[in-house]
Nucleic acid binder design. Structure first.
Lengths: 310, 310
DNA sequence: CACTGCCATTAGGAATGCTACTGCCATGAT
DNA sequence: ATCATGGCAGTAGCATTCCTAATGGCAGTG
């Protein structure tokens, strides 16, 4: 009763009204068909067909049973077509370009879940500077990239947003500012400064320049955020970093919001005027699914990686 | 992929997120579960689950497949409950009382089809006179009986109707009557008469009496219809019989309608104020199914029988 | 490091399921 | 009557499937 082949027999007999023809339709012996039927009837304890003289017809109990058997076979057929219809997301490769910050914060959980849902699709993440992403996309060297504040018209999958915050030594005069008041970019630019880039062209210096300012007293320029925090602890200067790069242990540090806020949004984008592959659409679809419901995306920073492999 | 047990595994894994627990839920080894899953995935050529660190979760393709698998299992469960719910029509006996005419005409095809649809139910037919049926019913000696012109209020299954016709020797004066004009009961009652009863108390004599007449010249009284036809052929007299008893070969006979028509309706009835069994309800249900659509009930007379056995 | 939870793999034995063959029954033709 | 035919059931045996038991690998965790 647990063998779907037997139920195929039941349906075939119902269709043909004849065990012998049902058997050859399925490609089996008449004997096997007869046995299959008998086995099912015995297991159910019910006669499903009346063996008439020249035909084998369903009984009153057989009729609804046959209907359910058809349902089972239709479901099986649906499974087959579902699998066939999803051939394009069964295997494949997505080349992804991202700058380090997002690559180590937003992307890991996303790509982890993507890899869970689409284990056949390999995501190759390329760590680049933020200003290289668009070039790679339009050159077709990557399929999807991380963009900052993308144009709304663009087919983008929102990853999240973050704000820049000031990090000061514990004893610094500005460290007494309340979280509500915060500090301004002007105030920060005047302080002895530890410039951290995180490998990004968007950094404290470019932000200041955007605001018509310049950092007046840069005491150090480092690539790693963690290096900057160490230097701030040592009272070398203040720094300005994306909120999400903050370490969990912050002894000796004071984090103060920048006012007015400097926000930016991260999103996955594809090359304009290019049809994304089914795999890429699946990746963007995951973001579309989860963003309306708000986050669900846990922070999971600190991981360094280049490739997600099946 | 053709083994429903495997699909039970798939669903159980989806439910528990854990192959080991799924296995013990179904009462199988972890090893077997793992193999079942692997077999299905291999046959489909698709990975349905991602083996995460501590749980086994469905992939994007797995999700719809699992849904269809559930459909299959639900259908199987429906089959089980259908069978359970029809225990009362799987075996049983119906005692049926009928007078010979209906027993040999309307009932054989009906009971044949009933036996096909409900092979577990034995129908024991009792051949009685028409006036005994109601007694047997109310005494509980039979479950269902054939009635003539039952009250509309009664829970009855219509079998069909027939009309009485006159059968005359070929050279008889009344034999020249057109089918439209027919002959009247009065005219017939005056003729030399062959009285055929068919074992029924409703016969030519009782019909005449109902009309305030009497048969003036009864030359023979026989039980078998066929005997009456022979006697009519021999010019012994005329006779009055139910239409359906007419032989197929009618050489030497002239069949003329009786005007005004004398009709009667046959129906299966149960004892009043008694709840019929499920088996009897099934039998009456068959008549209800077929009567609105008009007949379909082929004539199949001439068979003498008492019992229909599986 | 040991330990645990979870899964895959292997080998072997049991059960299942199919085929080939035979027999039975009813029907219909000769 | 007899035979031929069509359809189903029963049996033996073989091939396959499928399950269990045991082992090993891998990733977290104390």
């Amino acid at each position: 009763m647990m063998n779907l082949m037997h139920w195929r027999m039941v349906v075939a007999v119902a269709d043909t009204g004849n065990i012998t023809r049902a058997a050859e339709r399925i490609g089996m012996t008449q004997s096997g068909a007869s046995q299959a039927l008998a086995l099912i009837e015995e297991t159910l304890g019910v006669q499903l067909f009346s063996r008439e003289n020249r035909q084998t017809l369903p009984t009153a109990i057989g009729l609804p049973v046959i209907e359910q058997a058809r349902t089972m076979l239709v479901a099986l057929e649906n499974i087959r077509s579902t699998v066939d219809a999803t051939k394009d997301i069964q295997r494949g490769t997505i080349r992804l370009a991202s700058f380090p910050l997002v690559l180590t914060t937003f992307l890991p959980p996303l790509l982890r879940q993507f890899n869970r849902l689409y284990p056949g699709i390999q995501v190759v993440a390329l760590e680049v500077s933020d200003d290289e992403v668009e070039t790679l996309l339009s050159d077709g060297l990557v399929d999807v990239g991380v963009a900052l504040n993308p144009a709304p018209a663009r087919n983008a999958g929102r990853l999240g947003r973050d704000a820049w915050v000031a990090v000061l030594p514990g004893g610094h005069p500005l460290a007494r500012r309340s979280n509500e008041q915060g500090v301004s970019l002007e105030e920060l630019a005047e302080q002895p400064f530890v410039l951290a880039t995180g490998g990004c062209s968007t950094n404290a210096r470019s932000l200041a320049a955007d605001a018509g300012l310049q950092l007046l007293d840069v005491r150090a320029e480092v690539r790693e955020w963690s290096s900057a925090f160490t230097l701030v602890r040592e009272n070398i200067g203040v720094t300005l970093v994306p909120e999400m790069t903050l370490p969990t242990h912050r002894q000796g540090l004071r984090v103060v919001p920048v006012m007015p806020r400097i926000d930016r949004e991260f999103a996955l984008v594809v090359a304009p005027d290019k049809e994304p592959s089914a795999a890429v659409r699946a990746l963007l679809g995951m973001l579309a699914d989860r963003n309306p419901c708000g986050s669900g995306l846990a922070r999971d920073g600190g991981v360094t990686f280049n490739t997600f492999v099946d």
